[in-house]
Amino acid sequence: MPLWWPLLLSSLLFAIGVYGVLVRRNAVLVLMGVELMLNAVNLNLVAFDAYFRDVLHGGQTFALFVIVIAAAEIGLGLAIVLLVFRTHGQIDVDTMRELADREEPAVAER
């Protein structure tokens, strides 16, 4: 199998993940976009590993690390999302606008 097939597939998956993060407004779906990005990278790593016939299997090892860290990250992320849902009542990321640059006159000019 030519190397560019898995590379193309993984870049497509990565692009879908980026699109999901940028377009989805529900925090859980944004997290799914992030997961898709991480797993696209795993495919890429394993493909390179197989292509190089890496005796140390650096790519596959890295993929295992990414899986573990992605699990930790998603656990933490869902905890934060859950907390935000309990206090704010919804998880639409567009409504999180309390912290933002505001069009206020600067203090010195008041």
Partner: peptide, 18 residues
């Protein structure tokens, strides 16, 4: 505000580590 900050930091941090 604090939780909003955590959510934003987490989302963008995870995005950038991707």
């Amino acid at each position: 505000l604090s939780q909003e900050a955590a959510l934003k930091y987490f989302m963008l941090g995870a995005f950038s580590s991707g």
